[in-house]
C-alpha cells in the first residue's frame, strides 16, 4: 500500500502533433464537462437573488453578493441539520473504526474455516441494494422505538461503512510482518495485548484513513437519513432536499451556497487523505 507508482511512465508520447492535439481536445471537452458545472455552482451562489430569475441567465454575475451565504447561516433549521450531520457522521466513523479494527485483524492474521467466504461476503454486502435493506431496518427500528434517533442513523450508516473499513484495515494489517507478532507472543504478550500495543499503533494512519472514509460516507448518505429520521434528527442531505426542493420558486443562490457548504468537509477530508486515497484505492485492483 505504501509503494509509489512511477510518476513518469508515459504510455502515449505527446511528441507527435496528432497525439498532442487529440490530448488537448479531450482535455478541453471532458474537462469542460467536469468543471463548467462547478463554476456554475459557485457563480450562482454569489448571484443576488433577484438576478437569478432572468432568462437568458447571466454567465457572469454583474455584482457579487454574499446574501445567499448570509441567509444560510441565519437559518436555524439548517443549523440543526448541520449539527445532526456532524454528530451522526463522527459517531459512525469512530464506531466503524473500532469494530472493524478487530474484524480486520481477525481476517488478516488468523486462519479459520469460512474466513475467505466471510471476507467476500463483507465485500459483496457493499452491493446489496439500500432501498431493500431499509425495508427491514425501518420495521426493526420501529419495533424497538428507535425511529427518529441518532442510534438508528448510526446503526444504519454502519451497514455500509463497516464493510469498507474492514476491507481497508485488513489491507493495513497485512503489511505488518507476522514475525513481529510471533516475537511478542514468545515474550509472553497476550493476543489482546499484541493488538493494543503493537498492531493498532502501527496502523494508526490506516485507522485515520478508514475513519475519514466512514465519516465521508456517513456525511453523504441520503436515503437512510431521509427515511429513518424526522426534521429534528435529519442530516443535511435530506434536510436540504426538504428545505429547498419542490418549492414554487426555489432559492437557487441559497441552495447552491448550501451545496458548497455541505461539500466542504468532504473536500477537506479528501485533501487529508489524498496520498493514501489514490494508492489505496488502486493498489488491490491494479495488481490483481
Amino acid at each position: 500500500m505504501k509503494e509509489r507508482t512511477p510518476r513518469k511512465a508515459p504510455a502515449l508520447r505527446a511528441d507527435r502533433p496528432g497525439v498532442r492535439v487529440a490530448a488537448w481536445a479531450s482535455v478541453i471537452v471532458c474537462g469542460g464537462f467536469g468543471l463548467l458545472p462547478v463554476y456554475w455552482l459557485l457563480a450562482t451562489s454569489l448571484t443576488p437573488r433577484d438576478q437569478v430569475f432572468s432568462y437568458p441567465p447571466r454567465l457572469f454575475p454583474s455584482e457579487v453578493s454574499f446574501e445567499a451565504y448570509a441567509s444560510l447561516f441565519s437559518n436555524s433549521q439548517l443549523f440543526t441539520y448541520m449539527q445532526n450531520s456532524i454528530i451522526v457522521s463522527v459517531v459512525t466513523a469512530v464506531l466503524s473504526v473500532i469494530v472493524s479494527a478487530y474484524m480486520g485483524y481477525s481476517f488478516s492474521k488468523f486462519r479459520y474455516t469460512g474466513r475467505r467466504a466471510l471476507m467476500y461476503f463483507v465485500l459483496a454486502s457493499q452491493m446489496f441494494p439500500q432501498a431493500l435493506l431499509l425495508v427491514t431496518l425501518y420495521t426493526v427500528f420501529s419495533a424497538y422505538g428507535l425511529l427518529n434517533t441518532y442510534t438508528a442513523l448510526v446503526l444504519s450508516f454502519t451497514t455500509f461503512t463497516l464493510p469498507l473499513c474492514v476491507w481497508m484495515l485488513k489491507g493495513f494489517f497485512d503489511t505488518i510482518p507476522n514475525e513481529l507478532i510471533e516475537a511478542a507472543l514468545m515474550d509472553g504478550a497476550s493476543r489482546l495485548r499484541i493488538i493494543h500495543s503493537i498492531v493498532l499503533p502501527l496502523s494508526a494512519p490506516g485507522m485515520v484513513a478508514a475513519g475519514l472514509f466512514a465519516f465521508v460516507r456517513g456525511w453523504n448518505d441520503f436515503i437512510f437519513a431521509l427515511t429513518l429520521a424526522g426534521p429534528d434528527k435529519q442530516t443535511l442531505p435530506p434536510g436540504l432536499v426538504n428545505t429547498y426542493v419542490g418549492e414554487a420558486a426555489t432559492a437557487w443562490p441559497e441552495l447552491m451556497a448550501a451545496s458548497l457548504v455541505v461539500s466542504l468537509p468532504v473536500a477537506l477530508a479528501f485533501i487529508l487523505l489524498q496520498r493514501f486515497l489514490v494508492s489505496g484505492m488502486t493498489a488491490g485492483a491494479v495488481k490483481g
Partner: peptide, 13 residues
Amino acid sequence: LVPGVVVSFLWMW
C-alpha cells in the same frame, strides 16, 4: 467528491 444530493441540486438548476 461532492455529495450525491449536491450533484442533484446542481443539475436540477
